[in-house]
Design a protein around this nucleic acid. Structure first.
Lengths: 379, 379
DNA sequence: TTATTTCATGTAAATATTTAGATAAAACTT
DNA sequence: AAGTTTTATCTAAATATTTACATGAAATAA
């Protein structure tokens, strides 16, 4: 009781304290209830109290079944589980303060083309570091669209009220992400943004950085600028394209389809595709902006083999600043992305959602550093 | 009761069954106890039953404190916790079948020099995939030797009886690993082997692969073979050195200190170090074996800039088959490592330990593929 | 068919964890 | 020094989870 009063008053519960008993005085602050709750242990009034026992009474199933349903264990009929979850939600059982763990969901759309890069480890590191700081556990979940049990795994994520979700959405489409609007726990989308969905997201400031990179080429005197496009049009690439086009537009350079090369987003793939493209003997621009470093380096090799010197004949800019950019010949001018920071930001946002309750969705874009190396020549 | 009997007999507990009551007949198999246990629910005899309540009686602390100690929550005095854990162990409370989760421990010794590579994501992927197949959760824990709370985090890992451990030990020394012998739950060491410790390990077959790679150089006619050594002598590098030396020895080529270059294990670092070394104008061997691809590629660039053609003047072999090996100029001949498979193997071993009880430690070495590309010339 | 086993779904009771608060000692404030 | 707050440690009671088993229906074997 003493502690209860002290908590309401925002002060200590030291044993010396003498508090007038309810309801004899103005010892409480603001709109606090005027007397202690029925149940002094929980601080709840009887009619507010909701727990497994009450849910069991409400739904007519045993406490064991209710518990199993809420923790989506097996052995509970789908319909039963849905009823229990619905009832639990309606009665405010699933308060977010119960969440103590983060599930880091590695989404992949098939053959891990994009996820399997050094990008990932840095991201993960940021997530794990920050979640430890926030005293939460980090679980890793693979979610592969081509798995036979894809939907089951996803349902498990959506229905788990005890874990907040970070979706590594690099390879996600809007359709893939849409079901997560109905997740029982807070969700943060990492490395992608879906305008229609209104999910909290943390991602790279792709557009502005691509704009800046392209402007750099323009300031260096380039007017014919090509685009090395990733053959799988993930969100990041689309945003980069948009920034690229805007920069061209602003300086009055036309976007030329003939200077756009669609390349597979792997080193080998980009190399092969570029090699094939160069055999057609198309006219080349004086500079290229590439969707990422991998594509840029694959293309660089093909260009060099075909006798085009970099940067003397063709300039190149990449994106991501992967570790091997600094030792290519020439070293690649690129955009440095703060991957660890992204991971950390995602966890921070998630914790806000958990602790602070519902708020307006936020799209946080981590800004990047333009990194000048040796693959761009001033005309 | 019926189910209990059925289980002992290894058959169904269908309702039709009529079992003579204990102890009136030979209805049990082998050395089974001749009558049902005192407690039909648990299948235990009273004197065998051990649970939190009994531990509470034994230690004199409340059930809450016992529970907290066993799950190493805070709020329990160190000595109290130790007493409780000791008592629990003595009374066989901590059976391994209680383990349902895997903690993947990312150890790093300072500045993440070695851990922060594409290696990591593939490894992780294997671990997560296999643990899902085994119906276990995967948690990620960072363990950094330079953290102020390093020891506390480690103690948390050691004292958690409910999670099996995979130690990503790339950067670990024997000293770092030693405390894990006393972990309360099974441990598998990944990517390193400590002969003194007798811990179950899953790692690369470094020595044989390095031997094979060096032999390839020898078969190509090289007799003066140098060694590009990683400046941080992690276990993997030591084993590779050993294989390298053995191959030299077998063909009668001497190991020459003058042909050994100690290079930082980052791309930039290896490049800079090699560049500096080449300025001394030492005589060079006709081929190099490098501790890994990163070092090989850094050195390759320095060699090329100093006017040495690869492979015409100097041949190079790397290790790991990182994604960028195939697009360097020339593409790097290297050893392909099955990283995913390593992760999977570690989980499988862990599950054996959990389910199968204690056995003799096993050192499993995943064998590699030698991958010929363009950086070696036949003399 | 008929007998038997397996499976899906449920529960009571046993067991474990968590919450809210008690207590004394340590650490501040004034 | 005296008053006050914070911290570390513990517990009773409340709450949640797990175990061992029950039951009928579906699958399988005889």
């Amino acid at each position: 009781m003493l502690a209860w009063v002290a908590k309401r008053m925002g002060c200590s519960s030291a044993p010396h304290m003498e508090i007038p008993l309810c309801p004899d005085g103005p010892w409480w602050k603001g709109g606090m209830p005027p007397c202690p709750p029925d149940n002094q242990q929980t601080g709840w009034y009887e009619h507010m109290k909701i727990n497994i026992k009450k849910l069991s009474e409400l739904t007519g199933f045993s406490q064991a079944t209710v518990s199993n349903a809420l923790n989506n264990k097996r052995g509970v009929n789908r319909e039963t589980a849905e009823l229990i979850l619905k009832t639990a939600k309606e009665h405010g059982y699933l308060t977010e303060s119960r969440i103590g763990r983060i599930k880091f969901v590695m989404f992949s759309a098939g053959e891990n083309v994009v996820t399997d890069t050094p990008f990932f480890s840095a991201l993960m590191d940021g997530v794990v570091e920050e979640s430890r700081a926030q005293e939460m556990e980090t679980l890793i979940i693979r979610l592969n669209r081509t798995d036979p049990d894809y939907e089951a795994v996803r349902a498990g994520l959506l229905n788990d009220p005890a874990a907040a979700l970070i979706l590594l959405a690099t390879e996600m489409t809007e359709e893939d992400a849409a079901p997560f609007r109905d997740a029982m726990s807070p969700v943060v989308v990492l490395d992608s943004w879906f305008p229609e969905l209104g999910l909290n997201s943390v991602l790279i400031n792709n557009e502005d950085s691509a704009f800046e990179a392209t402007e750099h080429l323009i300031r260096c005197g380039h007017r014919e600028i090509g685009y090395l496009a990733g053959g799988i049009r993930i969100r990041n690439f689309q945003s980069r394209e948009s920034g690229f086009r805007k920069a061209l537009q602003r300086c009055g350079c036309p976007y030329q389809e003939a200077f756009t090369f669609l390349l597979s987003p792997t080193m080998d793939g980009a190399y092969e595709d570029m090699k094939a493209a160069l055999q057609e003997n198309r006219r080349l621009p004086t500079a290229f902006f590439a969707d990422n470093d991998i594509i840029a380096l694959g293309a660089m090799k093909a260009l060099q083999e075909a006798g085009h010197r970099v940067p003397e004949d063709v300039s190149l800019i990449g994106f991501d600043d992967m570790p091997f950019c600094s030792i290519s010949s020439p070293p690649l001018t690129t955009v440095r992305v703060y991957k660890q920071e992204m991971g950390r930001a995602a966890v921070k946002r998630l914790v806000e959602l958990i602790r602070g309750g519902d708020t307006v969705p936020i799209k946080s874009q981590i800004c990047n550093d333009f990194t000048v190396r040796g693959s761009v020549r001033a005309l």
